[in-house]
């Protein structure tokens, strides 16, 4: 119980602090402790922790969505706890979790634009440096936005489609 509450509040911290600040903090910890990680690795690490904080909630909601009667029935048929998780909870929970998980993935994909602050050149940063060269901010930014949109929109559509398909009795 204590562990549960501690984990919950720790993850809550990662959800309540701006990602930009998390990048700067972990980046400075990296240089203070002389860990020698590249900024790319730091960015991946921060995004991974941040994603984990959100994903935990999704998985929890998924497991809770499985009726406890179903699980009890499985257990009383002689399944072990792990078998119950694998054969009963997983197939049911996946249908609840996957659409939201796709949404989370897209959110993280959009949040990657923040890594420009610790000096990684990604889509937005490189379009900004093109802007300083060509002095055409509207056109270049519109193209960058279009690229983001084309990456995100089809997957978002897939997510809503799966959600509609898998929501029971709707």
């Amino acid at each position: 119980m204590v562990l549960q509450r501690a984990a919950g509040s720790l993850l809550d911290v990662f959800r309540s602090i701006p990602l930009l600040i998390q990048f700067v903090l972990i980046n400075s910890v990296n240089s203070l402790l002389r860990l020698g990680l590249s900024t790319f690795k730091v960015a991946c690490l921060v995004l991974a922790i941040y994603t984990a904080a959100y994903c935990t909630e999704l998985v929890r909601a998924g497991i809770l969505s499985v009726p406890s009667i179903t699980r009890r029935a499985g257990r009383s048929l002689g399944l072990t706890y792990l078998q119950d998780l694998r054969e009963i909870v997983f197939p049911i929970a996946v249908k609840v979790v996957l659409p939201n998980w796709i949404g989370l993935t897209l959110g993280v994909m959009k949040d990657t634009s923040l890594v420009l602050w610790i000096g990684i050149t990604e889509l937005l940063r490189s379009s900004q440096s093109i802007v300083t060269r060509t002095q055409e901010p509207l056109l270049v930014l519109a193209i960058a936005g279009l690229i983001y949109f084309l990456m995100s929109f089809p997957v978002a559509r897939l997510g809503t489609m799966l959600e509609k398909k898998w929501t029971p009795n709707d």
Binding site: K110, S113, L124, E136, L141, A142, Y148, F153
Partner: peptide, 20 residues
């Protein structure tokens, strides 16, 4: 547009894009 592009991009667009 609001849901499928990064928030940072949207702020950029207002600051630099509308400026032009």
């Amino acid at each position: 547009l609001a849901r499928n592009t990064p928030a940072l991009f949207q702020v950029y667009m207002v600051y630099f894009g509308l400026g032009s």
